[in-house]
Amino acid sequence: MNSKILFLSSLILIFFLNLFTEHIDPYYYTILIYIGINIILATSLNLINGYTGQFSLGHAGFMAIGGYLSIAVSTYFAPFFMGTFGTELFGQTISFIIVLLLGGIAAAIAGIVVGVPSLRLKGDYLAITTLGFAEIIRVIIQSLEVVGASQGFRGAYIFDNGVKAAQIPVDMANVPYVFYSVPKYTNFFWTFTFVAIIIYFIHNLINSTYGRGFLAVKDDEVAAESMGVNTTKFKVIAFVSGAFFAGIAGALYGHFNLYLNPEDFNFLKSVEIVVMVILGGMGSMVGVIIAAVILTILPELLRSVSEYRMIIYSLLLIIMMLTRPQGLFGVSLRRKKLKVKS
């Protein structure tokens, strides 16, 4: 019951905070939104890498699928959405929820496709496979004309003769068209509502008997299997729900940035999310959230010394690995929690 009340009250808080955020400096506002998106990405990857112990390096791939699909739907089908739900706030909200969920579901389906065959692999092999998958996604998007290929995607041109495209084709320069840019749906409220949802989701899941299955898979697969835990099922569930939220994060990102480029979802993006999980402490929700916040703000703080940014960044990681290999909030936090219980 406690977590339910906490969840609902945080939603109300987010709603009221949203009223204030309209007056924030756009620069800080952007950082705030990115913090939210990165928390979603990091906590969802934490379910796979931290709680279930499967090393996935392909989170940017799922994010790309969710992001691209959702903005493609909300631009190419913009006339449909406007016609059905209207252009008022209510209609926009419904359209947004639909495209968000579509993005999440598409990423989740991709998660099944990748997860079922590759989760038989362990450790490094799984990491390489998921990394390869993410790169495949990126390369496919790069060659998909319908979402702007390597030039990125800003919106859809819908021509009077019915043709739809991401760019004006050469032979149709004289045909009248309407340009539907990506609607700016993402705001503080939606981003942090999803932050609250994913935290609530993972918290409840992990603390239930069902969720013990994930931790058991991480700790000892053979023993878990012998105790009747279908380890493959649990791995796939973790993978697919992680992918779903990555898809949502991508959709939020797309509807905030209003422009997506395949390069946004390259190998470095995946690594960035993994670093958040490792820095925060595998399997520690609080740690991962804090790490996501720090790693979003840090590059901005280091902007004045941008030439040394990557050096400081990697130095920080090395120091972390040497001094606290379990992450900022690794095992120690959970030990405290256990003590309180007894």
């Binding site: 008997t209 013990r212 991480k218 878990a224 105790m227 009747g228 256990l338």
Partner: peptide
């Protein structure tokens, strides 16, 4: 399961 308490070790059997 090393990262789980005694209680949770047993809880896994109920999964």
């Amino acid at each position: 399961f090393p990262s789980l308490s005694v209680r949770d070790n047993i809880r896994v059997s109920f999964v």
